[in-house]
Amino acid sequence: MMQKILVTGATGNVGQEVVRLLLLQNCHVYAAVRNPPSDKQILGSDVECIPFDFTNPDTFTEAFKEVNKLFLVRPPALANVRQQIAPALNAAKLAGIEHIVFLSLLGAERNSFVPHSKIERYIEQLGVPATFLRCSFFMQNLNTTHCEDIKTRGELLMPAGNGKTSFIDVRDIAAVAVRTLIEDGHQSRAYALTGKEALTYYEVANILTSVLGKQIHYNPSLLKFVQQTRSSGLPMDFILVMIAIYTTARLGLAGTITSDTEQLLNRSPMTIRQYVEDYAEFWL
């Protein structure tokens, strides 16, 4: 039977790659998006775009009615799990969703402040079979969230101190996600997904400098980070979540290296140098 899978966050870094790989596996992919006409141009004609908004319950019934599995991505701007995420999860259970694969955060089981932890607990309370992909810091955040800082100011600005981070490429995350969605045996499991090396942001800046051929320096100032993100219009809830994530790195808790990614993919995870080489055009 063909798998019918709803992908939230389908136009994001991980979501787009998950959609692409699911289509290669002959799955029927539904993209839960806020603007189907424009998002279909991004995702392509093989994807059925379904109107969906976590903050609009009127969109839930139609989105969940045809699917049996859900790839769940928390929208970064939504931090109140009880009000902004839980109603959609309730609707998914009522619709008979058989399996949720949730894009979570490395260490979420030990960090109750981050929304990912609250979502994990809520899914467990619902009793829907689930797989939690607890991912380390995405390499691709450097060419999205932090792209302008790197490109225009030659600066990596994040309050992570001298702590190491086991960065992971979203292409590896998506490959793992697809396996857990289409294969049996991953329900009620949590995977800690990391890259193969743990680096400080000073080391990342050096790799960027080496590959791009221009000087990139790392600035760990918390005050400047808050000022910069506020001036760019990001909501304070979102900024506080980012600070919590970077604090994890600063305290030395983000440098864990696990074997889960390599075991699930049967290959070594991508390195950050490989990532920078592949994405260099974003910062030039």
Rank of each mutant, 00 (worst) to 15 (best):
L133C: 14
V204W: 00
I216E: 04
G185S: 13
G127N: 01
Y218W: 00
L142E: 06
S136A: 15
A160I: 04
Y201R: 09
Y218N: 11
C135Y: 01
L199P: 14
T200G: 08
A174K: 09
R179G: 12
E155D: 00
H146Y: 09
P220Y: 00
L208G: 01
R134N: 09
T209R: 03
A198K: 13
H217T: 15
A190I: 11
V178P: 07
A190D: 10
L193P: 13
R153C: 05
R171I: 15
V226H: 05
S166I: 15
P220M: 12
A174I: 06
G161Q: 05
I150K: 03
D172C: 14
A175V: 05
V176Y: 03
G161N: 08
Y218R: 00
V204K: 06
N162F: 09
Q215E: 12
A190E: 11
T194V: 11
V128A: 13
S221V: 06
G161R: 03
H186I: 07
P159T: 11
A174G: 14
Y218C: 04
R153S: 05
N162A: 14
T180I: 02
N143H: 07
L193S: 15
Q140C: 06
G127M: 03
E203I: 12
Y191I: 02
T180K: 13
L193D: 14
L156I: 13
K164D: 02
K224T: 02
A130H: 13
Q125A: 02
R230V: 05
M158G: 00
A205C: 13
S188I: 00
P159Y: 09
Q140M: 03
T152K: 10
T144E: 00
T131Q: 05
L212N: 00
S210L: 00
T180Y: 05
V226C: 06
R179K: 14
Q227R: 02
P220Q: 12
M158E: 05
V226A: 00
L222C: 07
A174V: 11
I173M: 10
V170E: 14
I182Q: 05
G161L: 03
N141P: 02
T194D: 05
S221G: 09
R230H: 06
G195A: 06
P220E: 10
G161Y: 01
T144N: 14
C147I: 03
R230F: 06
A175M: 13
D169C: 11
E148H: 10
A160G: 13
I182N: 04
A205E: 04
I207G: 12
A192S: 07
R189V: 02
N162H: 11
L199N: 07
R153H: 10
Y202C: 04
V226R: 11
T180A: 07
T200M: 01
S231Q: 13
G185M: 14
T200R: 08
L126M: 05
G163Q: 07
G163N: 07
Q187C: 15
M139C: 15
H186D: 01
I173D: 01
G213L: 08
L212C: 13
A177Q: 12
S136D: 15
G161H: 06
M139I: 03
N162Q: 15
V170P: 03
I168S: 07
T165L: 03
R153V: 01
H146E: 03
F225G: 06
T180M: 12
